[in-house]
């Protein structure tokens, strides 16, 4: 039973992601209220913020897998860490794109250095882009796994320190969503937000497993070719 379930995990995950996404879009359209100041365009918030949070989740997951590479010498974790960071970069780019669109609509410019969140994602994008440069200029093997894992761990140290630094460098004028008094959102807003975040996470998990399965298959194929070539 569990084995069958495990084999069917990916399709189930994909179906759940689709259902959640449909529900999220419906609730963004019909449940979430139209913003008094920004009007309809504020609804990009329900995509922008969940995408950003998902990117963080991927970076954290990648670092966790990296820790397992170093700590437990878990060979499979190297590929998992790589795939997590790859997906994280994709979601990071989407954060930059949606953030840029939002900046254009609300402030009239495509790029705003005053938006800490956007600047942080730009720094992270550059940092993790270099991860791929590193990975593709070292031959596969335990040394590459170690180097990539150490770099991924630097990433999770960089996120809070950069966040602090960029906050210090700028005034915080991006719309504040959570304050110390709890969410500043109405119940309906909060519901739509949570639903779209859950949908985004489910979508992210499906993409992660699809890419991982593809990469594993590719690796198996190469191994078989190697055996045949002997």
């Amino acid at each position: 039973m569990t084995r069958a379930l495990r084999q069917q995990r990916l399709p189930i995950l994909a179906v759940v992601a689709c259902a959640l996404m449909a529900a999220a879009i419906a609730s963004i359209a019909y449940v979430a209220p139209v913003d008094a100041n920004q009007g309809l365009s504020q609804k990009i918030f329900y995509f922008h913020v969940p995408i950003a949070l998902t990117a963080y989740a991927f970076f954290a997951w990648g670092a966790w897998k990296a820790l397992r590479v170093l700590w437990k010498r878990d060979e499979a974790a190297d590929l998992e860490s790589y795939v997590a960071i790859h997906q994280g970069v994709i979601f990071g780019v989407l954060t930059l794109v949606t953030g840029s669109i939002w900046a254009k609509i609300s402030w009239g410019v495509w790029w705003a250095w005053s938006s800490n969140q956007l600047v942080l994602f730009l720094v992270l994008f550059l940092f993790y882009a270099a991860y791929f440069m590193l990975r593709y200029s070292v031959d596969p093997g335990p040394q590459r796994a170690n180097l990539c894992a150490v770099y991924a761990l630097f990433g999770v140290a960089l996120i809070p320190v950069s966040f602090l630094a960029i906050r210090l460098a700028n005034d915080f004028i991006h719309p504040t969503v959570f304050t110390s008094n709890g969410p500043q959102m109405s119940g309906r807003m909060f519901f739509a937000f949570c639903l779209s975040w859950a949908a985004m996470l489910a979508l992210a998990a499906s993409l992660y497993h699809v890419e991982l399965a593809g990469k594993r298959l590719d690796s198996r194929l190469r191994e078989l070719r190697e055996v045949l070539a002997r």
Partner: peptide
Amino acid sequence: MAAASRARELLLPLLFLPLVIPLVI
């Protein structure tokens, strides 16, 4: 890290600059 890679000197600035942005700030 850069010394262990094929790209070497080319790679170092790419790895280094994003990491020292907090220092510059």
